[in-house]
Write a protein that binds this DNA or RNA. Structure first.
Length: 429
RNA sequence: GGAGAGCUGUCUGAGCGGUUGAAAGAGCACGCCUGGAAAGUGUGUAUAGGUUAAUAGCCUAUCGGGGGUUCGAAUCCCCCGCUCUCCGCCA
């Protein structure tokens, strides 16, 4: 969420910046609501002040044993008047809140301006795609040939866009996860956290998935007979949600910053809009494994932190020997809550293309404001933190990349050195 | 799943319809005292929102969350969440 004060003060400039990301801010609507809000709030609070004074006076008079009837008569009308004004104020405020909740973050000045992914800018490239002396297969052909991947079984058990992995491939996914977590906690200074995979609405609102992206998230059905609670629960679309919400409504000691967490979780996405793309294989699934890094930092440090967080994700690809490129997302392609995002795209020989394997973003104080995630230095006033996160990495897609990049003519897969300890010491599968 | 107890500021803890944003203590900050320190002593010590040039004043809200009763609610009523204890079940 944007700062309401800033929005009021620089409405035109903010609108111009948001236009870069394809968002049209309804200036007239905002100004009208804001004017109403201001009038009604002032009026409401005045009536409240009056009511408080009267109540106090009655209390005092009663204590002295005086007759309070004249005072009671004097305030007879006030309640009604207050009720009406308050109602009007609440409804305007609710409309304003709903509008604010749907305004995306302001892109950082270094975020390239553009309409779609074509305008994303390649920042750097690492590694050279291997040249094959045979016809390179894609991961579906490779894994099916070895009996490692069973799409039909998954469909039978659940529905489309899930998968069953078997044998060495299933183990390799687990090995990858361990390797990623270990690298982040041992080399990059992250603290590992284990978090719930089911979250409430407040958490999803805090990180910005709600209210706008409800269609992409699996919502759990309530059983009316024995669930009397009034809160809805959802499967996490990413570990970002539970991990970032660790600091919701918290004030941390500024001396402890930065806080760096890493978590491995499955992620569940209904991906309503994406049918027709990547229909085969592991690229786009309703359920996938991901290792996620989350940082809470001092506002002055967040852009330095974005670079280092991105480097942390890159380090994994380098250790795994997977060629990749770093893309700075343009204003039109960036997610709702982000001010700046780097995507890491790994080389996939099966597709002869670079494909997203990690997305690293600085949200500045956009999420923190929704979350009320703050820090305090000494006796200073609490200040909003800056939040960042990035995949490190999407495990399923890393598995795809390993299979395709390390395939041999006979269909076996050579394992990069760093994974061998996690695979019982073997050098290929 | 059953029964009971509770949820108050950084913490402990009082208040159970009336000038209570909230006693008291601890902690913390600043001062006094001291050669210095401890002890003692004094003052201060929430957050959010509005108004505003203002991080100055002033106003509003907040005692787990939401709603209600009332001129007035931390205090009474209802719904929900959470914590603890005992029993049952379970990985």
């Amino acid at each position: 969420m944007l700062d309401a004060k800033q929005l009021r003060a620089d409405l035109k400039q903010v609108a111009a910046k948001l236009a870069n990301r394809g968002f049209t801010l309804d200036i007239a609507k905002f100004e009208s609501l804001e004017q109403q809000r201001k009038d009604l709030q002032v009026k409401t609070e005045q009536l409240q002040a009056q009511r408080n004074q009267n109540a106090k006076a009655i209390g005092q008079a009663k204590a002295k044993g005086e007759d309070v009837q004249p005072l009671m008569d004097a305030v007879a009308n006030l309640g009604n008047q207050f009720e009406l004004t308050k109602q009007a104020f609440d409804s305007v405020q609710a409309e304003l809140d709903a509008m604010m909740a749907l305004i995306p973050n302001i892109p950082h000045e270094t975020t390239p301006v553009g309409k779609s992914e074509e305008q994303n800018i390649e920042v750097r490239r690492w590694g050279v795609p291997r040249t094959f002396e045979f016809e390179a297969k894609d991961h579906v052909a490779l894994s099916e040939a070895r009996g490692w991947y069973d799409n039909d079984a998954a469909t039978k058990i659940t529905s489309a866009r899930f998968s069953v992995l078997k044998g060495s491939m299933a183990r390799l996914q687990r090995a990858l996860t361990q390797f990623m977590l270990d690298t982040h906690i041992q080399d990059h200074g992250y603290e590992e956290v284990y978090v719930p995979y089911i979250v409430n609405q407040d958490s999803l609102f805090g990180t910005g998935q709600l209210p706008k992206f409800a269609a992409d998230i699996y919502k759990l059905e309530k059983h009316a007979e024995h669930d009397t609670s009034d809160r809805d629960l959802y499967l996490i679309p990413t570990a970002e949600v539970p991990v970032t919400n660790l600091l919701r409504n918290e004030i941390v000691d500024g001396a402890q910053l930065p806080l760096k967490f890493v978590a491995h979780t499955p992620c569940f996405r209904s991906e309503a809009g994406s049918y027709g793309k990547d229909v085969k294989g592991l690229i786009r699934q309703h359920q996938f494994e991901k290792v996620e890094m989350v940082q809470f930092v001092h506002p002055d440090q967040s852009y330095a932190a974005l670079e280092s967080l991105t480097n942390n994700a890159e380090a994994l690809l380098q250790k795994l020997g997977l060629p990749y490129r770093v893309m700075a997302l343009c204003t039109g392609d960036m997610g709702f809550s982000a001010a700046k995002t780097y995507d890491l795209e790994v080389w996939l020989p099966g597709q002869n293309a670079y494909r997203e394997i990690s997305s690293c973003s600085n949200f500045e104080d956009f999420q923190a404001r929704r979350l009320m995630a703050r820090f305090r230095t000494g006796q200073d006033k609490p200040q909003l933190l800056h939040t960042l996160n990035g995949s490190g990495l999407a495990v399923g897609r890393t598995l795809v990349a390993l299979l395709e990049n390390y395939q041999q003519a006979d269909g076996t897969i050579v394992l990069p050195e760093v994974l061998r300890p996690y695979m019982g010491g073997v050098d290929k599968i």
